[in-house]
């Protein structure tokens, strides 16, 4: 099964727990595949609620990636290229949502952007707009949790691309903006793509912050995970179908990123 190592056999104390870990990770996924009602899979997909949830998840996750790219790329560049006081603090603050429980993120978003929130109240007074329980709120919640992944990935790529090329461009007469567009960004593109895929995956699976801040209304704020949660008690079979779709999407993400993370030593 394995090539014999010149250092001797792998000790049972290591490989047995390793086997346990693999079984633990793989069995639920296999169970899901087995339990999926494949016979009715296509029909389940065709119900209006599922189609609405699928369509909403697709739109909001793509909008999230766009939002991350628009503000996350500049933030990553500033963190990687501009020296300023408090840079470490900003980086730490930006990464807080990485470890924040999603429900807390939802509550925090309500506190900021809710009807009577810190920014939400003046916004409502000025324009009459309220954000919570709208599709826009879904995108905001997703962006809040996905942005740190994106920024960290892109900042890493910008740092590893190094400043030597930026300097070469500057000496050749390029402005910083020209350099960013023509040199820095193209060289960091693999990191940008990886960050985008990560943000997309994070958005697709987001549940806690979304239900808290945007609610769970079919058609406007009910994404796939919210739909699974809503139907599980009444219709476990439909829930498994939906879960299967998300599993397939996740595997797709993994395949997209395989060159980056599944090859030992290739990680950025």
């Amino acid at each position: 099964m394995t090539a014999r190592s010149p250092l001797g056999r792998a000790p049972a104390l290591l490989w047995v727990p390793a086997l346990v870990a693999v079984v633990f990770l793989v069995v639920p996924l296999v169970a899901l595949v087995v339990a999926t009602p494949w016979a009715s899979f296509i029909d389940d997909l065709r119900t209006p609620e599922v189609r609405a949830a699928l369509w909403l998840s697709l739109r909001t996750s793509l909008a999230t990636v766009v939002a991350c790219a628009l503000v996350g790329t500049p933030l990553a560049w500033v963190l990687a290229r501009v020296e300023f006081r408090g840079r470490g603090l900003v980086r730490a603050l930006v990464t807080v949502p990485l470890v924040l429980p999603p429900v807390v993120a939802g509550v925090a978003l309500l506190a900021a952007l809710g009807r009577s929130g810190l920014l939400g109240a003046p916004l409502r007074d000025a324009t009459g707009l309220t954000l919570p329980y709208t599709t826009a709120a879904v995108v905001l919640a997703h962006t809040f949790v996905a942005l740190p992944f994106y920024v960290i990935s892109v900042e890493g790529a910008l740092r590893s691309a190094g400043e030597a090329f930026d300097e070469a461009a500057a000496v050749l007469g390029a402005t910083r903006w020209h350099t960013f567009r023509r040199v820095t960004l193209p060289l960091a593109l693999p990191g940008v793509v990886a960050g985008g895929v990560l943000a997309w995956a994070r958005s697709l699976g987001e549940f806690g912050a979304t239900v808290t801040f945007a609610g769970n209304y079919p058609g406007t704020t009910q994404t796939m995970p919210s739909r699974i949660y809503a139907v599980y008690l009444d219709d476990p079979a439909a829930a498994r179908t939906l879960a299967m779709i998300l599993l397939l999407a996740s595997v797709g993400v993994l395949l997209l990123l395989r060159n980056r993370w599944l090859t030992p030593g290739a990680a950025a």
Binding site: A164, F165, E167, A168, A169, V171, L172, G173, A174, T175, H178, R182, V183, P186, L187
Partner: peptide, 26 residues
């Protein structure tokens, strides 16, 4: 200023011609 450094700092994503044209385009 023209600056040629030890080692390689040609832009890896551009062809030789695009590298040379870069300073003019900029």
């Amino acid at each position: 200023v023209g600056h040629v450094v030890q080692g390689r700092d040609l832009f890896p994503h551009l062809s030789a011609r695009e590298n040379v044209a870069f300073g003019l385009r900029a």
